[in-house]
Amino acid sequence: MSENLNDPVEELDQETCWELLRTASLGRIAVSFQGEPEIYPVNFIAVDKRLLLRTAQGTKLLKLTINDKVALETDSVGAHSAWSVVVKGTARAIESQNEIDAANALPLHPLIPTLKYVWVEIKPTEITGRRFQLAPEPERY
């Protein structure tokens, strides 16, 4: 990471982006429906160069099936630095029983106690990431 405050932004390579995605579990998925953008919080898992998430039947799933082009962003903020990774790709509901069984074996569980039986896979077409050096807090007297 750059220690130069004049250049506090570091572009991340693909492998670093995947390493960060594997440490994250909460993100925001962006979809477009009838020309209007929508963003939903989701928990996800990064595995085999793809992202998997669980959802229930409803508006989010409907919008994903009508327009499969999505973006998912996840990030983290620490005391001295922050990072953000954005994945753009195509989404599809997993329907084959073999794929569902494999997904059910993954350590991804809903963050809230709702029933989410549908697995969605995002196949990335573009991944970008940045790490930011945060400005020091001003001293207070």
Rank of each mutant, 00 (worst) to 15 (best):
R92M: 11
V118S: 02
A135S: 14
N43F: 02
G35Q: 10
L53Y: 04
Q133G: 04
E36C: 02
L5V: 11
D48G: 05
K60E: 00
N98E: 15
E36V: 15
L52P: 04
Y141K: 10
D48V: 07
P124A: 12
E73A: 13
L134Q: 08
V9H: 09
T74N: 04
T125Y: 02
D7S: 13
G27V: 07
E73F: 02
E11W: 07
N6P: 01
D48E: 14
P110R: 01
T74S: 08
L5R: 15
V70G: 04
V77Q: 09
P37I: 00
S96L: 12
E126S: 10
W83L: 01
A79M: 12
V47Q: 14
E38Y: 15
V70T: 10
T125F: 00
A46N: 03
A82S: 12
N98T: 11
E137V: 14
T55E: 01
I112Q: 13
R50L: 08
F44S: 03
Y141Q: 12
K123G: 02
T114P: 00
T55N: 02
N6M: 13
L64Q: 02
H109A: 10
P37F: 00
W119C: 03
I94V: 15
L111P: 11
D7V: 11
A30D: 07
V70P: 00
T23V: 03
S32V: 15
V47C: 07
F44K: 00
M1L: 15
E137G: 11
A105L: 10
L26W: 06
S2V: 09
F132W: 07
F33E: 03
K123Q: 14
Q34C: 04
L106W: 06
T65D: 12
G78F: 15
P37L: 00
E99C: 12
Q14V: 09
K69S: 13
R130D: 06
P41N: 04
P37H: 05
S96E: 12
E15T: 09
W18C: 01
E95T: 15
L52W: 05
E137T: 15
T16L: 09
L106V: 13
E36F: 09
K63Y: 10
E137S: 15
E15P: 00
E137H: 13
E38S: 13
P8C: 12
V31S: 04
F44P: 00
I66N: 07
A56Q: 11
L111N: 06
N67A: 08
I122T: 06
P110T: 07
G35S: 08
Q34G: 06
A30H: 01
R130V: 03
W83C: 02
D13R: 05
V85Q: 00
R140K: 14
L26T: 09
K69G: 10
E15F: 02
T65L: 14
V87M: 06
T65Y: 01
V9Q: 06
A103N: 14
K123E: 11
E3T: 08
H109S: 13
S81N: 11
G89M: 03
A103K: 07
I39L: 14
V31L: 07
S81P: 01
L111V: 15
V120K: 01
L61S: 03
Q14H: 08
R131H: 02
L61M: 08
